[in-house]
Design a protein around this nucleic acid. Structure first.
Lengths: 148, 148
DNA sequence: CCTTGACCTCAAGTTGACTTGAAGTTGTAC
DNA sequence: GTACAACTTCAAGTCAACTTGAGGTCAAGG
């Protein structure tokens, strides 16, 4: 398959595929003249990458998780840790979702005055708000504390 | 409170607080000389912003959801839509989590050959790619990256 | 032979969310 | 009365994940 075919099949633009190749996320099996040739299996790999992205992983993380040659030669502990991390994020997102759903039907003058909202959003009582961890440039986890 | 106090209480650096103010996410109640003064309630607001970020919303989205004065004068429909969007993301993340957990204990030579992994990861049938819209730099669909 | 269109490379631009740096101001401690 | 930390503004830098643009290659068609 040439890059156009992969692009069509995967829904990703050629520029992205080239970028992914440059990053080492996918590889072409050779060239025909200048043109890259890809194996059909690249589509599976792209699906996995897509899934990883949707789940919030960075390309670098996905690179590590997928392994350089598609094999999972990666530490099982690491995979497990990733799953746990993901799980914590899911908890937060569910809190947010429930908070939003309630906010959509609540008639309190301000959500901050609605105990149900605060509880759903996980802001109740303790003032233990979750750590906000995005990618690398953050030195340390920061949490907004004590607003309760 | 001056910006240093807010920074200390919230865990966010002053630069971020200034940036948030510039964006309209928070506001100061006045100045003492050049220095900003904040009401204590800004901490609640920051907690909410922090939660929104952790759930994967952009600052602009949070701005809309919180409203300019902390009130939820925003469309209930919008809140509900956001909740649904979040829910779809959560589904994907759960798929990923389960896939990872299985990968951590699976002994198949390649995960792509393990039907259980493929099913868990939601790649079972064929063409299980996420709904990618072409053409425009789409934000909504991948703003998921929140707290990885 | 010339055009067209899909491919190529490499460099630079974009967006979001900040951070960093330069240069200036203020309040307090010595 | 001066040193110093903590504040101020404004501009520019950073990072990820791409996209866009300039300039070039190559096969097919008229």
């Amino acid at each position: 398959m040439d890059i156009g075919k992969v692009a069509k099949s995967s829904g990703l633009p050629p520029s992205t595929l080239r970028y992914y190749e440059e990053k080492g996320l996918i590889k072409s099996v050779g060239r025909q003249g200048l043109r890259r040739l890809f194996a059909a299996s690249v589509l599976e790999r792209l699906a996995l990458i897509s899934l990883g992205r949707a789940a919030g992983f960075s390309l670098d993380e996905i690179c590590l998780m997928l392994g350089p040659d598609g094999q999972p030669r990666i530490d099982r502990q690491r995979l497990s840790d990733k799953a746990d991390e993901l799980d914590r994020t899911i908890q937060k997102m569910m809190a947010m979702r429930d908070g939003l759903r309630h906010a959509a039907i609540c008639s309190a003058p301000s959500h901050m005055e609605c105990p149900k909202f605060l509880r759903l959003a996980g802001l109740a009582g303790t003032g233990a708000f979750g750590p906000r961890k995005k990618s690398s440039p953050n030195r340390a986890d920061r949490s907004v504390a004590g607003a309760g």
